[in-house]
Design a protein around this nucleic acid. Structure first.
Length: 502
RNA sequence: GGGCGGGUAGCUCAGUGGUAGAGCAGGAGCCUUUUAAGCUUCUGGCCGUGGGUUCGAUCCCCACCCCGCUCACCA
């Protein structure tokens, strides 16, 4: 028999013995006066004398995460998932039945404890237990107390174990929740209305990406999981919702990496009557406020870097930055105009060794060159602005330059965190852009945008000029929590099934 | 999808072409203020899966599965 099976049998036998003492195997409830965290937060500053002068009685509950036993006395460490508190159990302080129970407890069991707070000889805040309640059995042995759970595969597949034994994991997900709350508060306080738009869409629009396909049986209809909420949120601006946002999941049927998960959370907001310039300053304000609120500072470590998220952020124009860096690499002057014609842009990409997708026009080549030369070096928050129209089918052109749209992407930590633009609200131009996308699709670009007739019709009713922005929540949380993989900020990242699960 | 690395006890990790190792966890014993408690002792393994080479494979070779990193793609 394997060691694990032996332990399971022993723990089952312990549970039987516990029920023979008269405890329910799975009691339905246990009334507490405090959580472990409340006790730790509220009393960890109190001295031994404080606790002796004013006795604090408590009833609490949690999971036993370690045991140090001395025969007729033992120390249990109780965790409520966030904090840990020691419980001192001694025979002469308990009823015989509760003392017998204490001998049958295993690491991982859930228990309730009644007692009062004190400090031990080594000054550790503890509960002096006067009675115990059995709450649930842990049959499987927990990972090791000292090294915790290291195997990332098990950490992701069995996140509950990760949360039990690796306390820092809880912190990351508290940062995640705090970030979402802070953003919500910020936008709401600026008059934005939070909404929910369809996740199942007849046309997967609003971004350039390959969608997941699904099917509705009763309607016998093919549907896509959304790749972005964009077109629905803009329909709402047509409907008069001048400030609107949504924080929700998007789904993209593409590769997985440390920065990409097939489902990811995005904030999108739309703001009538402003342009992308206003969005830049708004983004600076939003991010520095969120960082301060969630982690208490705008300056924080990320991998080997220290990121400074205080305003203002750096700003670089895409074509200018690409030309400048290309010139540096090649040792010859490179003009912005070379990025505007197909032949010269192609030649430049060739000289730089930048691969370009087939059928790409000068705009796509210019942005490919930019990403290849710059992306990983953009560690400090940087707005990259003024994108080629060709790669931005939903953005509004600059009045002085139809080849360029009023769009920016925000890079932090070497990856894209936000994407924003002055929204295209001219239905004729929008239809032309969709048709251009259709021809790119025909040329083999599977990520080209589909035609959305209803969206064009909505624009025909008149959409106010507006700025719109998407912020990748997972990536923002990676930065704030110093997590180098997106899977570390997603509770249950997508994993291939294992053979023994199939 | 390509390249590199990994998969050995419940967990963290060593290791070898010839009976499989440690620490933690677990069992038994001692122990009523410990802090990775301690001491004695014991248990626990399809060495990822399937082929091959070999007298003999956990180790060498091939294929496959899963994970990580990276490149490609994307946000």
């Amino acid at each position: 028999m394997s060691g694990e099976v032996v332990q399971i049998d022993q723990r089952k036998a312990n549970l039987e013995a516990i029920t023979r003492l008269g405890f329910a195997a799975y009691p339905n409830k246990f009334d507490t006066t405090h959580s472990v965290s409340q006790l730790v937060d509220g009393h960890s500053a109190k001295s031994k004398e404080d606790l002796e002068a004013t006795r604090i009685d408590t009833v609490t509950a949690g999971r036993i995460v370690s045991v140090r036993s001395f025969g007729k006395a033992s120390f249990l460490v109780l965790s409520d998932g966030r904090s840990r508190l020691q419980v001192y159990v001694r025979q002469d302080a308990l009823s015989e039945r509760d003392y017998q129970l204490s001998k049958l407890l295993d690491i991982g069991d859930q228990i309730g404890v009644t007692g009062h707070l004190f400090r031990t000889k080594t000054n550790e805040l503890s509960i002096w237990a006067s009675s115990l309640q059995f709450l649930a059995k842990c049959f499987l042995p927990l990972p090791e107390k000292w090294h915790g759970l290291q195997d990332v595969e098990i950490r992701y597949r069995q996140r509950y174990l990760d949360l039990i034994v690796n306390p820092d994991v809880r912190r990351v997900f508290e940062i995640r929740t705090g970030t979402v709350s802070a953003i919500r508060e910020f936008l709401t306080s600026h008059g934005f209305l939070e909404v929910e738009t369809p996740m199942m869409q007849k046309i997967a629009g609003g971004a350039l990406a390959r969608p997941f396909v699904t099917h509705h049986n009763a309607l016998d209809m093919q549907l896509y999981l959304r790749i972005a909420p964009e077109l629905y949120l803009k329909r709402l601006t047509v409907g008069g919702v001048e400030r609107v946002f949504e924080i929700n999941r998007n789904f993209r049927n593409e590769g997985i990496s440390t920065q990409h998960n097939p489902e990811f959370t995005m904030l999108e907001f739309y703001w009538a009557y402003v342009d992308y310039q206003r969005l830049m300053s708004f983004t600076e304000e939003l991010l520095s406020k969120v960082a301060t609120q969630v982690i208490g500072t705008t300056s924080f470590p990320f991998g080997e870097h220290t990121i400074d998220m205080s305003a203002p952020f750096k700003r670089v124009s895409l074509r200018h930055a690409a030309a400048e860096e290309a010139s540096k690499r090649l040792g010859v002057p490179v003009s912005v105009d070379e990025l505007r014609s197909l032949d010269s842009a192609k030649a430049l990409a060739g000289k730089l060794g930048v691969e370009i997708p087939k059928g790409a026009g000068p705009g796509k080549i210019a942005s490919a060159i930019f990403e290849s030369l710059w992306e990983e070096h953009l560690i400090q928050p940087t707005f990259v602005y003024d994108f080629p129209t060709e790669v931005s089918p939903l953005s509004k052109q600059r009045p002085d330059d139809p080849d360029t749209v009023e769009r920016f992407e925000l890079y932090i930590g070497g990856f894209e965190v936000a994407n924003a633009f002055s929204e295209l609200n001219d239905p004729v131009e929008q239809r032309r852009r969709f048709e251009e996308q259709l021809s790119q699709f025909a040329a083999g670009d599977q990520e080209a945008h589909a035609m959305d007739e209803d969206y064009v019709r909505a624009l025909e009713y008149g959409m106010p000029p507006a700025g719109g922005e998407g912020i990748g929540i997972d990536r923002l949380v990676m930065l704030l929590s110093n997590s180098l993989s997106i899977r570390d900020v997603i509770l249950f990242p997508l994993m291939r099934p294992r053979a023994d699960e199939a």
